[in-house]
């Protein structure tokens, strides 16, 4: 290749490059020109490489010309790229402002059922207080649901709980108190256990009742004298203050359950009217929350414990009821109808 052809070639590269740059409107186009001309295998890069084959005396002149062109193109490309970037920024800033009140993208969060949420909160309190969680079956036999819990056959106490009977003499548990028997017959004291679960009674689904509902049974058993009615009061008061707030006012009323003796019902000062009397508390100022008592000696005997040596307390609470009170609504059906407009509020 002669010097003159190289000169011509340099001129050609320059003309084409400038032509291409003048048509470049996007930084990417400028970049592609740079790669084509100045890249590792670019036109000018190749040419400069080829200069090594020229006779030594001719090299400085054309070499200088080539390097001049390289510098010139580099500068122009850099300037053009800078210019294009500046223009894009100006364009972006010149755009009209967003209507920031338009909706954001929807991410369709699902919901956990309110009962699950309340149950979770309650279990968290009990486990923090040192109780373990045990799950027990829904299908039960007469012994675990009634007999061992001191419900004699044909006793009117069984009528408090209208039972669904299944084949083979089995039944759907009417309360989670079967948990006491199921756990105690396998293990020895000391025990502190809560058993959440589903229960069933023959009530039509209505504002106040459901044929299926949830309860949480809890109990604590230890050596006689270590677990007393006083501990029961202390433990339940602590739970209720954790659940309803530290200012919750708690009272105990005598009651009857076949499986506890003494038996009591526990009320909380109405959280809606602060005790003044309202619709929720039926003007009494108190809301009934749970039933409790000292485990009946016959129950301890039924699981092979000696009531002279061991004693314990037990309690049971309806979880829908707690949820209704917490949410300030009254209709039990809300939990089982699954109206998405209700569920969406959680």
């Amino acid at each position: 290749m002669s010097t003159s052809t190289i000169r011509e070639r340099l001129e050609e590269i320059r003309r084409q490059a400038l032509e291409a740059l003048s048509q470049s409107l996007e930084p990417a186009q400028v970049e592609s020109v740079r790669v084509r001309v100045l890249g590792r295998n670019g036109e000018l890069t190749e040419l400069i490489r080829s200069l090594r084959s020229l006779p030594e005396h001719e090299r400085p002149v054309v070499g200088q010309l080539a390097n001049q062109l390289k510098r010139e193109l580099e500068e122009r490309i850099e300037a053009l790229a800078r210019e294009l970037r500046r223009r894009r920024i100006e364009q972006s800033l010149a755009q009209p402002a967003l209507d920031v009140t338009l909706p954001g993208m929807e991410f369709g969060r699902g919901r956990i059922h309110p009962l699950t949420q309340i149950t979770g909160q309650i279990l968290e309190i009990w486990t923090a207080m040192g109780f373990e969680v045990a799950l027990t079956p829904d299908i039960e036999d007469d012994f675990h649901n009634f007999g061992a819990l001191n419900f004699p056959p044909d006793h009117p106490a069984r009528e408090m709980q209208d039972t669904f009977f299944l084949e083979g003499g089995r039944l759907l548990r009417t309360h989670t108190s079967n948990g006491q028997i199921r756990v105690m017959e396998r293990r020895r004291p000391p025990l502190a256990v809560v058993c959440p679960g589903t229960c069933y009674r023959r009530d039509e689904l209505s504002v106040r009742y459901s044929p299926m509902f949830s309860q949480l049974e809890g109990f604590m058993v230890d050596d006689f004298g270590k677990v007393t009615m006083a501990h029961l009061k202390g433990t339940l008061t602590e739970f209720l203050r954790a659940f309803f707030g530290p200012e919750a006012d708690v009272r105990f009323r005598a009651s009857f359950f076949p499986f506890t003796e003494p038996s009591a019902e526990t009320d909380v000062r109405c959280i809606f009217c602060k005790g003044a009397g309202c619709r929720v508390c039926k003007q009494s100022g108190w809301i009934e929350i749970l039933g409790c008592g000292m485990i009946h000696p016959n129950v301890l005997r039924a699981v092979g414990y000696d009531p002279q040596k061991h004693a314990g307390f037990a309690f049971g609470m309806g979880l829908e009821r707690l949820a209704l009170i917490r949410l300030g609504v009254e209709d039990m059906r809300l939990f089982f109808e699954n109206d998405l407009r209700f569920l969406a509020q959680f």
Binding site: G130, A192, M220, M229, H231, K233, G234, T235, F252
Partner: peptide
């Protein structure tokens, strides 16, 4: 109504 029974905190029976 069990009002002379005091309320006593339970020590968890065990970890």
């Amino acid at each position: 109504g069990f009002s002379d029974v005091p309320a006593v905190r339970c020590r968890p029976l065990r970890e």
